[in-house]
């Protein structure tokens, strides 16, 4: 291996690592607020790419039907839950089902108008983000106080349901989206692609935005309060359901943005999300599912290890990446004191 190969591998590893990093941050966020290990995180990434690719092929994205199906199920759930209180029912519907309906209408409108690339991107992000509240309402809200293990099992179920729906609405074949920029820059002896620079810039921007959001906005503070102490937050008037819904929605938005970044780099399938999300999860584990900066660093490390192991031992690439989790778990189990769940 010479310097240029190492540089190329580093570039590749950093690009993938940046995307894993976004997913790791979303996982930490959802876990901190709701104690849910959010396995379906990757599905948002896959749905984003497939939606945008459908737009590009001039096909009505299956997302429209997915959103309508979600909205219908949520409406049914709200009717059952608030059948005695029509006022609350309407408010609950507006929070959980309305975004899906609006998003479906936007996607359909953008498709019908043959709108440009920018509008397609915007519609895709809105569509995927609006799945967040609906998924939280359907899957997690009814069991919000259940033990972590129950929530994990629910997550696995949501993952399988979304993958199945993905196959139904998008088909079995993969898709790529066109690159935001085809330009390359010469940096010394090596070429850096514009797309990977975009990935770095986006990731850094999003991390900064998240930091500001948590530090200065009321919603961000509410989320932090819920993460720190659920009962305490509730006592000062923060609805745990609202906080949970908001965190899953943010995770969906982050998933959508990651999808935009990864779409031009690789072929994405209806079930690709899981593995991408899992690598983000390895990163998040390094941070103990609690620390944002360590999770981010861990995810970038995963990307680098992946790139270099694909060069040295491509047959064992995944094995090497996922084995990373073992020393981390060992180290964590020795250094942290275990305390019972409240």
């Amino acid at each position: 291996m010479d310097f240029s190969i190492a540089a190329l591998l580093t570039q590749d590893g950093l690009t993938n690592g940046a995307i894993y990093c976004l997913l790791a941050l979303a996982l930490v966020l959802v876990f901190a607020v709701t104690r849910v290990i959010f396995i379906p995180q990757g599905e948002f990434v896959a749905f984003t790419v497939l939606t945008l690719a459908s737009f590009e092929q001039n096909k009505l994205p299956g997302t429209v039907w997915l959103l309508i199906a979600l909205a219908a199920t949520v409406l049914l759930a709200e009717i059952v839950a608030y059948r005695k209180e029509p006022g609350r029912m309407l408010r609950a519907m507006a929070a959980s089902a309305l975004p899906c309906v609006i998003a479906a209408a936007i996607v359909w409108a953008v498709f019908a108008m043959q709108a440009g690339f920018a509008l397609q991107v915007a519609a895709t992000v809105i569509a995927v983000t609006s799945m967040g509240p609906a998924i939280y309402r359907l899957a997690y809200q009814p069991v919000a106080t259940a033990p972590v293990l129950t929530l994990l099992i629910v997550s696995v179920a949501v993952h399988f349901v979304l993958t199945g729906l993905g196959l139904l609405f998008f088909g079995a074949e993969g898709a790529r989206t066109s690159a935001f920029t085809g330009s390359t820059f010469a940096l010394g002896s090596m070429n850096v692609s514009g797309q990977s620079l975009l990935v770095y810039a986006f990731t850094v921007g999003l991390v900064v935005a998240m930091a500001l959001f948590f530090k200065y906005t009321l919603f961000g503070k509410a989320l932090r309060a819920t993460a720190a102490n659920r009962t305490g937050a509730r006592l000062v008037g923060i609805s745990p359901n609202f906080a949970g819904s908001l965190s899953v929605t943010l995770a969906a938005a982050i998933g959508a943005l990651s999808g935009l970044l990864i779409g031009p780099i690789t072929t994405v399938y209806y079930d690709s999300g899981f593995l991408i999300g899992l690598k983000g999860f390895v990163g998040a584990i390094v941070g103990g599912l609690a620390s944002y900066p360590i999770a981010a660093g861990g995810a970038i490390f995963v990307g680098l290890v992946e790139a270099f192991s694909s060069f040295w031992a491509s047959a064992y690439k995944e094995v090497i990446v996922f084995t990373l989790i073992l020393p981390v778990l060992l180290w964590r189990s020795f250094t942290t004191t275990h305390h019972e769940e409240e």
């Binding site: 190329l8 591998l9 590749d12 690709s272 593995l275 790139a307 694909s310 060069f311 491509s314």
Partner: peptide, 11 residues
Amino acid sequence: TDASTTGQVLK
């Protein structure tokens, strides 16, 4: 499921 095959291709 590989998102990237840069390593293999470089080799």
